[in-house]
């Protein structure tokens, strides 16, 4: 029984870690700008495409990985400056529409560059290696992801709680106007948020695409949406919440993918039930349930509506 569940559990933890790295970008941006950055999933996808092209040009790995991460962070910064900053005083819906526009643009740009073909992700030594845990054969990335995710999250939480820029971030997310009056440079705080979010999405993309091995212009949208759901699930605006939410979603989704096999092996059902079809839908069902039962998520702060 356990040996049937284990592979799904492992890949769930791994995917959960990758979602977590994307979800942090969503939750931080939402915390500060109250914006669902629909383009975040596409930034994640662009990071994957960048890796494909940079490593194809023959650059060694110890240069290409930092380069990809730096470029991804730069793209996040640029998107904020070009598409969101001019709309700062506009209604929230305008910024969200702008985010959808950016997502559309990035996807089309990648479609143009790649010609709409699946790009094969370069295999990265060590994390692409195969290992065997408890009888289940998997890749090294499965073990590396949760560890790396936790290290990065701890570092991020330290940054938010113990540095000046982190304090500024917390202030801005509490009250936009007041923190501006207190002399905090709003624009640079927002830029830093986007840089951090995109950087983590870049790390996530390296881990995620090592697992899935191909990148196409639409491969960012589904992980992006799921990561957003994770952020809502954990309580949007809360970094640890996003991480917990992401792991829960990753694990549940992968268990659902394997539920047919697991149940058949356990002798509970004899025919496949087609649960795999719902592995994506499950995430959204979870989202709707959490929004209705506890709209602030697991760790979210209570929002008070002002008239």
């Amino acid at each position: 029984m356990f040996s049937t569940v284990l592979p799904y559990l492992l890949s769930g933890v791994s995917v959960g870690g990758q979602y977590a790295l994307i979800a942090i970008g969503y939750t931080m941006v939402y915390g500060i700008l109250r914006l669902i950055n629909f383009a975040h999933g596409d930034v994640f996808m662009v990071a994957g495409i960048l890796m494909v092209y940079i490593s194809a040009s023959g650059v060694p790995l110890y240069i290409s990985i930092p380069l990809v991460l730096a470029l991804t962070a730069a793209i996040g910064f640029a998107i904020e400056r070009v598409a969101y900053k001019p709309l700062r005083s506009a209604p929230r819906m305008s910024i969200m529409i702008s985010a959808i526009g950016v997502s559309y643009t990035l996807q089309n740009l990648v479609l143009y560059i790649t010609g709409g073909l699946n790009q094969f992700y370069p295999s990265i030594p060590f994390i692409s290696d195969t290992v065997t845990i408890g009888g289940a054969s998997t890749r090294m990335v499965t073990i590396v992801t949760p560890i790396l995710t936790l290290v990065l999250v701890v570092a991020l939480v330290m940054l938010i709680n113990h540095t000046k820029i982190g304090m500024a971030m917390r202030a801005v997310s509490k009250d936009f106007e007041t923190s501006r009056l207190m002399g905090i440079k709003i624009n640079s705080v927002i830029s830093v948020t986007f840089v951090i979010g995109s950087f983590l999405a870049g790390v996530g993309s390296i881990l995620y695409f090592t697992n899935y091995s191909t990148v196409i212009q639409t491969s960012g949208s589904m992980p992006g949406l799921k990561a957003f759901v994770a952020a809502v699930f954990g309580g949007i605006g809360s970094v640890p919440g996003a991480v917990v939410g992401a792991f829960i979603i990753g694990i549940c989704e992968n268990l659902l993918k394997g539920l047919d096999t697991i149940l058949i092996k356990a002798g509970i059902i004899t025919k496949t039930f087609g649960f795999t079809t719902f592995s994506d839908a499950f995430t959204f069902a979870l989202l709707i349930i959490i929004l209705i039962v506890k709209p602030t998520g697991l760790f979210g702060e209570k929002q008070i509506d002002k008239v």
């Binding site: 109250r34 914006l35 669902i36 929230r92 819906m93 969200m96 949406l225 957003f228 759901v229 809502v232 079809t277 719902f278 994506d280 839908a281 995430t283 959204f284 069902a285 989202l287 709707i288 929004l291 709209p295």
Partner: peptide, 19 residues
């Protein structure tokens, strides 16, 4: 639900219907 939560919930429902 309000504004962006409504957006994401309806988007989620569209995905569920598709599945």
């Amino acid at each position: 639900l309000k504004s962006d939560y409504l957006a994401i919930a309806t988007l989620g429902f569209a995905e569920i219907i598709r599945a």
